[in-house]
Design a protein around this nucleic acid. Structure first.
Lengths: 192, 192, 192, 192
DNA sequence: AATGAATGAGGCTTCATTCAT
DNA sequence: AATGAATGAAGCCTCATTCAT
């Protein structure tokens, strides 16, 4: 009865969706959401425009798909924070940040470029997600700082939060940013 | 019809250009470059679409005009760095950053949103400007840190650079960001 | 895989075709031809898009199929006209009209909505069919009127023709149309 | 100051809107709403696609504009009904119907083709307008019939309503419809 | 016989830009 | 200097149709 098995179809769908998501991520990150056309995504993915609408109802839904994909695997970060020794935990976080920036270049760029827009109600959901993540990090930083016994743990936590974002932004911006050097210095300064 | 002296005409021109620039800055900053239409700028400025093209050859030229306007008055920052006492200089810089962010909300947003785009050759000039500013700050930070006699002056300078950007970004993002608190803590930590 | 006899296959084909035709009639009638997508028909019929093209070469051919189906069973009407007594014949016709409208709500709507289009050569065949039916009715009406001995039989026939269409149109239009009342009045007026 | 006077602009706008409305009416009536593209309207009007959106926010708004234009001048009909003698009033109505159909060929076609669609909420407003007009006619017919002293005035009014629509529909459909003949017969039958 | 992924032409709409006044 | 009607390229999206399985 069934000409293609459900598994076959599912595999095809997954593969196509992935192609689309990767192409979209790539272009959104490089050129920004508004400056990326659906045609360009299709071309980049090597498929037809129409197919995109087979999987996503609109360009905006596609964006949501991209963001969801990106949000999936941030578990590592919170694993790192479970370490007993706060110095070790911080060292892990710094290294994770470095690897994350290197491996997912463009992702941070995308997050920033989307958040930076004020269109009410359209990317609002993204702001919420980021705000939540940020508060999570802040809490972790503060408890680590408390463990380390610093005077103003909350203030230090805020600075660390700003540092993470500042480093990410500058690395994303400039090809020449001395990421390794900065991370090493952070470890030396914070982890002993 | 009414004859006008050259001065009158010049004044009119200046006033119109200003109106256009302010409207464009406002909208570019709030909604992003690609998401702002020339019509919207004209409406926001209370003039006609046509007039914009009387002063700027294209939307892109208008953007350049906006950026140039923004770059004009960063002299305060470098005045602050001239102070003898490095602690005082740093304090001034922190306070200037705070005031700049509060007074020109949205401007940093614009800079980021533009820089984040990779379209070759289009906003490249902006990246260059920013890179140059950034290197200027870095040099200043490093010399201040050296004056303060810290061990790794270059490393500390890089961290300060990241902090400036991180704080700016987070303040731009979130209405709730405790800017005062952060600046106060920075002063306490770095200026004595 | 499973071997099927010719009869089984034929039965399956007939059943599928019927499902398609009914779904298409339903949607064409409700939403109009141009405003109904092949996908929607497939969904409504509970089958795949592809299957429709197994039976009909195009959306237009499918429409032709629907129309042919509709034209098949108008025999009742002409049976009614065979009655000896013209008053009885008319009464039957009025009642048939009422039942037809009630039972096949939407069908008249479809006929009108298709006929109303002027695209040369596309639905032209439908116009011809309708024209022919109309002339048939006119002839019947005229002969009945002659039998009844009215003065201007042709004029009265034309009016009856217009009445049939007007009533159908208005009933199709408006949920509140007093069809029963109108038919009763017609019978009272014409059948004695 | 003002380069074009307001009157000039107003005249230009009116002329353009008229061109658009006429083209839209023409095509909507001939080919139906869904089967008429905005491009086709622009081509038919001899203007660019974009200009249409200078005057109408969407294709649907354009349709509303067309309908409003059509609804503007139905005053004649109600003037006719004011006559003292019901026979004279009816005669005027019959003649007006004839002239209306001849002069505004296509208009009735448009009304029917739009009303025939069931899309909730889209053309609903048109149905309301038509329903209202129809009830208006019905009331007029009934009072005329009462004046004439017929037995079942309401029933006769309903028949007249159906006749108007039926005649309109058949004339709209068929090039060969004997409109003159039918109207003459109506006058003979109803107006003495 | 039957499925649904894939295509691409064409539909509606937006918008940077031009130009007559 | 200033206006806004007009243009047309390009953007998002729909849908009839094809085809591998």
């Amino acid at each position: 009865m069934t000409p293609k098995t459900k598994e076959q179809i599912a595999k095809i769908r997954t593969r196509s969706k992935d192609k689309i998501l990767m192409a979209a991520l790539d272009l959104f990150a490089k050129k920004g959401y508004h400056n990326t056309s659906v045609s360009a995504i299709a071309r980049h993915a090597g498929i037809s425009k129409g197919l995109i609408y087979n999987y996503y109802d609109s360009k905006e839904e596609l964006l949501k798909g991209v963001i969801e994909m990106l949000m999936e695997d941030s578990s590592e970060f919170f694993l790192a924070t479970q370490k007993e020794d706060p110095n070790e935990a911080l060292r892990s976080l710094f290294v994770l940040l470095k690897n994350y920036l290197i491996e997912k270049r463009g992702l941070y760029r995308l997050a920033v470029s989307l958040s930076v827009q004020e269109e009410v109600g359209k990317f609002e959901f993204l702001k919420d997600i980021i705000e939540e993540k940020f508060q999570g990090f802040l809490t972790v930083f503060e408890s680590l700082m408390t463990k380390k016994g610093v005077k103003n743990a909350k203030g230090e936590a805020l600075l660390l939060g700003a540092l993470f974002d500042g480093i990410s932004l500058q690395y994303t911006f400039s090809e020449k940013y001395p990421l390794e050097e900065v991370i090493d210095f952070l470890i030396e300064k914070y982890c002993k």
